[in-house]
Design a protein around this nucleic acid. Structure first.
Lengths: 111, 111
DNA sequence: TCGATAATTAACAAATGGGAGAAAGATTGC
DNA sequence: GCAATCTTTCTCCCATTTGTTAATTATCGA
């Protein structure tokens, strides 16, 4: 059972360009760790740490393919960005509502 | 005219809990710098830097009130999170589409 | 003009994060 | 068994970030 990662960690994960690129690449299709390292131009150890971080915050998941147990296949986790989108939308909507109220207030005062 | 800040900087800005809290507070109403510092429990200089960062990436804007030119009033910038939401949605939707394609592929093969 | 107030910038220490290479773990194929 | 392959963990280094205090700038009010 995957604990829903803190929104903190998820934002931090996506704050790094290399990790966002990984997410974009995994959006196209699942890929092996080495493939991602090559694509982004990072050494394997660096990529490994990025992948661990992305996994920890629930953005991606790891699978061992049956044909070769050495490789790890990473894929995007569906719905992993729901929390972020929800936070962004809530904040933005609240502000829009307040803006409306503020404008009404100003107009009332201005009369 | 405000240059659209890189999505990089915006994600990084929201990766910090204190800055996200600022954004939440500003979602309720515009506030003074000192008010934000008190609310979050940070010294003024620290808050000042957070606000500069948020301003640089286009999430908030600064205003000098006419009644006292010493204070700075910060408020949320409407539509500032559109880029982020768009990136999240695009990535997620692309992945959903690929998932569908993959499932179809597997079923075809499995026949 | 002078002291108080609001906020920012400067300077510095501590913590964090990201990269590389070396080494280790696990697995494959001969 | 053994070399080759795929990936991760360990260790070290450098750059950035974050918070604090002290100093600075600007403005208000008496």
């Amino acid at each position: 059972m995957s604990r829903s990662a803190s929104i903190d960690r998820t934002f931090a994960a996506l704050a790094d360009p290399a990790r966002r690129r990984v997410v974009e690449l995994l959006g196209q299709r699942p890929r092996r760790a080495g493939e991602l390292a090559d694509a982004i131009g990072l050494a394997a150890p660096a990529m490994s740490r990025h992948l661990r971080l992305l996994k920890q915050c629930g953005l991606i998941e790891e699978a061992h393919p049956e044909f070769d147990a050495r490789v790890r296949i990473y894929s995007l986790k569906t719905g992993a960005m729901a929390d972020l989108k929800s936070w962004l939308s809530r904040t933005e909507e609240l502000w829009a509502a307040q803006l409306g109220a503020f404008k009404a207030h100003v107009e009332k005062k201005g009369k």
